[in-house]
């Protein structure tokens, strides 16, 4: 945008100069500064309202919780109590006495593992269900029932099966996030326009080429919708699962803080959980946008 605008401006300036050499016109430069100003305005419009709301909410929180005998700490106390944790997230005193970075990273590793498995299995099953009418008839009712089971309800069963916390947590992530991936992938596959199938038939793509060159790109917007819902659910499930299995992880950190009555630490951990969840969602959304550029609009 900027480039063309400047170019046109230069052209206009030169033609004006050659047509009337007496008037020495210095090429004006307002558009660029104007563009910056506009960008700054747009950013301000987006950033200022949430900042104002956050400031107001913090103020209300402070006022409500500052009274003596209040059950929850005000923000000022939260900050004072958790300053060490905020400033040094990397300490490691052995056992479970670790900085928040290590807890978050342990949780993220579990999510990464479980979520990757569910992405692979989910897309594969989704393709199967989307492509084959018989697979859909057989599997869809099963999926519809299984997907309503709350994540934590799977935990005792997986603990019984794996006899260990780590694989159980990963299994809970897997089983939680797989359903939206399967269902959205299947819808995407079913919605591939007949035109694309005809093109593939005329060109005589074999099934593997059809899968890679037509199916996956055509269904990509749907697949990424499923992946995005899936990552959100994984992050929801991991915190709850870690509270029960113990060890290192942000969920366990919260539970541990509760047992030691460190309410401020719980609040800090909640902030981190929220921010990490937000970043994960944006990451998948951004990846989806990058991969499906050109596909979305036809």
């Amino acid at each position: 945008m900027n480039m063309t605008a400047t170019k046109i401006e230069i052209e206009a300036a030169t033609t004006a100069a050659s047509a009337a050499p007496v008037v020495a016109m210095t090429p004006k430069r307002p558009p660029r500064s104007e563009a910056y100003a506009r960008m700054a305005r747009e950013t301000a419009v987006r950033v200022i309202p949430p900042l104002v709301v956050i400031a107001l909410l913090t103020l209300v929180w402070e006022l409500v919780c500052r009274r003596a005998g209040s059950a929850l700490p005000p923000p000022s106390k939260v900050f004072k109590d958790t300053k060490e944790l905020i400033l040094d997230p990397f300490f490691d005193h052995g056992g479970i006495d670790k900085g928040l970075f290590w807890h978050l990273s342990a949780s993220l590793q579990r999510v990464a593992f479980g979520y990757s498995l569910s992405a692979i299995a989910g897309i594969a099953l989704g393709v199967l269900v989307g492509q084959s009418v018989w697979a859909m008839r057989g599997l869809d009712p099963l999926f519809q029932v299984l997907r309503t089971i709350p994540p934590l309800a799977w935990l005792p069963l997986s603990l019984a099966a794996f006899r260990d916390g780590q694989p159980s947590a990963i299994f809970v992530i897997f089983i939680t996030s797989i359903w939206p991936i399967i269902i959205n992938t299947a819808v995407g596959i079913r919605n591939i326009p007949q035109d694309y199938r005809n093109v593939a038939a005329v060109v005589q793509l074999n099934p593997l080429e059809f899968f890679a060159k037509i199916m996956i790109p055509a269904a990509a917007p749907y697949i990424f919708t499923g992946l995005r819902i899936g990552i959100g659910l994984s992050w929801l499930a991991i915190v709850a699962a870690e509270m029960l299995i113990g060890g290192v992880g942000i969920g366990f950190f919260i539970w541990d803080a509760w047992n030691s009555s460190h309410i401020s630490e719980i609040i800090l951990a909640l902030f981190y959980v929220g921010i990490v969840g937000f970043v994960l969602d944006r990451l998948i959304a951004g990846l989806g946008k990058f991969v499906t550029r050109g596909t979305a609009q036809n």
Binding site: P193, D195, Y196, N198, V199, A201, V202, V203, Q204, K213, I214, P217, A218, A220, T292, G294, T295, Q297, N298
Partner: peptide, 19 residues
């Protein structure tokens, strides 16, 4: 009786792959 490139089709709505 099956599709093939010896009978290539130009489709009404172009059917180019958008990606």
């Amino acid at each position: 009786n099956s599709p093939g490139p010896d009978r290539a089709v130009v489709f009404q709505n172009h059917s180019l792959l958008p990606w």
